[in-house]
Amino acid sequence: MEEKICEIDSEEYFAPGHRACAGCGAAIAVRHALKAAGKEVIVVNATGCLEVFSTPYPETAWRVPWIHGAFENAAAIASGIDRALKHMGKRDKINVLVFGGDGGTFDIGFQALSGATERGDNFCYVCYDNNAYMNTGIQRSGATPKFAATTTSPAGKKVHGKTEYKKPMPLIMAAHGAYVATANIAFPMDFISKVKKGLEFRGPAYIQVYASCPRGWRIDSSMTVEIAKMAFEARVTPLYEIEKGIVAISRKPQKHVPVSEYLKAQGRFKHLNEAEIKELQENIDKEWDRLLKLEETKIMI
């Protein structure tokens, strides 16, 4: 598929010179999301890598208004901003864009996000999913994939990394009635158009963007985009939208890449045995079939 890069806003709202690791997927995601939002935006950020590496006082990478409160309350802060804008009669002029890591979204911030979504508050929540609590040094989250080694789910002799599958956040958010999309830093045009759609949606929007983390995934920093692309091709992270509860797959991988290739490329999976890789492949196939069926049958989530 052809990508028209020229349609991306050439203005940079996320300044270079921040302190992210080389090859940080989250930084790429934010740069593109801000281009989608443009100037008239207020950003809310949950505690995590992004907040820490972008705002070491008195420096800031943010050229748009930005606020950080705590780890688990980004959605609640966004609610307050949304309603304040509404009260001042500025709601239609200014977008509210939230960034939270997977820990701040799937786990500790889930209640606040669920509450704000249930209330129908108007914001676009972007969860940059790097599969673990990275800021505190690579700990397991509800978004960590099964068998991945983290510092709290280590690849031990007895237990081989994380023992559970990832929480199905997009489906959970779709059940709330939100506009939902999954995205991937390797597909910036797709991501940007989804953020635009999420911001235009009158109500809560949830976008989960796959954002590689060289530190946590034990990959070379040059592999950031490559790994994200492989995740898509191996169907680890399908790209889809859920509007009014109806699933639409955004694009399907052209070639079938076995998950083993994706796993082999990363240090966090290097301890996996054949049986475990087989289990993961079977689960991926099952989930992909489920997604195809959801799209085909147009069953409302």
Binding site: I77, G80, R83, Q111
Partner: peptide, 13 residues
């Protein structure tokens, strides 16, 4: 927790 967080957001706005 969300009440006081929403208050923070609104006041900041």
């Amino acid at each position: 927790h969300s009440s006081i967080s929403a208050a923070l957001g609104a006041q900041a706005a």
